[in-house]
Simulated scan of single mutants.
Amino acid sequence: MTVAARATPLRAWHLAQGARMVEFADWELPLHYGSQLAEHAAVREAAGLFDVSHMRPLDVSGPQARDFLRYALANDVARLDGQDGKALYTVMVQEDGGILDDLIVTRRTAREYRLVLNAARAESDTVHLRCLARRWAGSQRAAPEIQERPDLGILACQGPMAARQLAAVLDFPELLQRKPFSTLERDQLFLSRTGYTGEDGFEIIAPGDRLLGLADALVAAGVKPAGLAARDSLRLEAGLNLYGQDMTVADSPARSNLDWTVDLRDPEREFLGRSALAAERAQGARQALRGLILKDGIARAGCAVSSREGLPLGQVTSGLFAPSLRRGIALARLTSDTPLGATVFVSLRGREHVALVVQPPFWRRGRPCHDVEERIREHDT
């Protein structure tokens, strides 16, 4: 029997806004509201609103919460010490260094942390963390409390005007003073200056019954509803990985352009996967995630990438037409000795398409990244 996709509290609202709904990670979500390109442009130029309630908050608390998360996560939550409301991007890996998920962890107090998990990994992540907590605690330590929060939903208000519009709607001017990767909590709202678009903005975690009023107020203030299609083109332009494509349990952080999320500085911190990741860092990863700019054509996940001489280099993990750059871009896992600036070939439907290798991101905060801009000029000439 087919299991029905789960619905967020805003399903009826999406339909009323004219959304085309699709299934994604077992959730029914809006693909677009009529025009992916218009929604993409709204986020780049002003502000867009995404329902990301398929992402799952998970609260970890107790006197041992900090020490447990130092063991469970590859980045070190000790970097948040003394900074209530500060957030950290990290990966969670298994013993061999393969990525189980990427996530954001926020320190709420010295003994309370909030994780936000990817939808496709939320259930398995929660089981993993609970099993890990029991194993870690043993007889000498108390296991932290790990609480799922299905009562909460998440909206993302993103774009250069997003913070100003959200602050006006909430009558909360203090939001404008928050720095990236910091949060404020007020009136059951958890407001985090984070996002998945390469633009400024906030992610708002709130009780499910608050989402409708927030969405209506933001749209009335001029924020444009946006769906999964725009979210994908925005995140890829920003060089942000998608779990299940650009990183999987078969890939380490170093193979996924995420080695910077692995903190090995404290030799006393034994976290899960440390030995494997330290060994790979010492030896050097055999593959790396790079950006590709295509002269023509649109690469898709799985497309083979080869050198000028026809030697196999790797394959595309994500690819699409980039509205901001007006050409095809992609992320590809290539041999680590493939140099930036190299000309390579992407196989699309039996034809070889020229591409240039760049270091992602392609676009951040209103303009192409410098290296990308330079490579585009090379293509055009």
Rank of each mutant, 00 (worst) to 15 (best):
G366L: 06
R231M: 11
Q36H: 11
D251A: 11
Q177C: 08
P267M: 05
V305Y: 01
R66W: 02
D232M: 08
V77I: 07
H379F: 02
C369N: 10
D251Q: 15
A78W: 06
A133Y: 04
A229G: 13
D232I: 07
T335F: 00
V52Y: 00
A41W: 02
A19V: 13
I298L: 01
G159M: 06
R281M: 07
D209A: 04
A41H: 12
L294E: 03
A254P: 11
A156H: 09
S35E: 06
R300P: 00
L88M: 13
R107G: 02
P30G: 01
A167N: 14
L73F: 03
W27G: 08
R269I: 04
A87L: 12
A7H: 13
I376A: 04
M161D: 15
P30Y: 02
G227M: 10
P173G: 05
S318F: 00
M55S: 06
L73N: 10
V169L: 12
G273M: 06
F345C: 06
A7K: 15
R108L: 10
R349A: 08
S53T: 15
F345Q: 13
T381A: 00
S124V: 09
D102E: 12
V22W: 05
K86C: 04
A221D: 14
R108M: 09
T194Y: 01
K179V: 09
L258R: 15
L175R: 08
Q147L: 13
V77L: 09
E95W: 01
L320S: 10
G291I: 05
M1S: 14
Q245F: 06
L37P: 07
L29H: 01
R333K: 14
A250I: 02
W260K: 15
R231K: 13
V3N: 05
F68T: 11
T8H: 06
A42N: 14
